[in-house]
Design a protein around this nucleic acid. Structure first.
Lengths: 123, 123
DNA sequence: CCCTATGTTCAACGTTTATTGAACTATCGA
DNA sequence: TCGATAGTTCAATAAACGTTGAACATAGGG
């Protein structure tokens, strides 16, 4: 029951499914937060997202993000650690994830995202 | 009743709404087809999409695409001509539209898109 | 002026979605 | 061993979504 959940292979990743996943404000916030964490090359666990919604609702959104191939869950004791499937996404749809994340960053206020770091945009 | 339909201003364009719009296979196909047409700097009318679904269903999808700011409709006689709001999208979310379209191009077969031209990808 | 072609509107429908709370499982530390 | 912590599962619900067909509006050509 606590085995590592299923993820699609790289080739199975489907564009409409990915876009649908990213179109939900809560899931977009999760992805955005994971992208921030990427720079520290570390992971986040479920509890780090408790601000976004209730635990049971988050479990639902995590499953969606996993099933569409956007993120990866690693089980460690009573924790689940998650990170973006950056390499697979970049190989499958080059530039897409970055474009979405920097678009989200531009609208961080409107989307109620934590401005954890400054925007990645260079001039 | 046949006045030009409402479109959001550039600033009103909302990321989750845009992604949601693009996540539907029919709407993605419409956007893809409009993007192909962009190179000829011309427009397409409703009838050009009849292969994708029934007329009444297309009207529904066109409305969604308009309301989220992805495309623009111009009424001319008994026809409606449509094109992408390329400038607004690029200003609002730089790189997003291109990333989605070239991702769709990569999966043209799987998404049942017409391979109207070869893929834009350069090496 | 009628007929046709183009596209919209509306109501109906079945499906999928996001959200909730309560009950549950599993792991860790005292 | 007990209790707290982390997260899942499940059933229920309300809202939104995509699709359909029939009826309608409008413009252009014979």
């Amino acid at each position: 029951m606590s085995r590592t959940p299923l993820h699609p292979t790289r080739e199975q990743i489907d564009l409409p499914l990915v876009l649908d996943c990213l179109s939900d404000p809560i899931r977009l916030a999760i992805v955005y937060q994971l992208a921030q964490q990427e720079r520290v090359s570390s992971e986040l666990c479920c509890g780090d997202f408790n601000g976004l919604s209730g635990k049971s609702n988050l479990t639902y959104h995590f499953a969606k993000l996993r099933e569409c191939g956007l993120m990866l869950t690693r089980v460690a004791g009573t924790n689940r650690f998650m990170r973006l499937r950056r390499e697979d996404m970049d190989a499958r749809f080059p530039g897409l994830l970055d474009a979405v994340i920097s678009s989200a960053a531009k609208d961080a206020d409107r989307l109620q995202l934590l401005p954890e770091c400054e925007v990645v945009e260079a001039d």
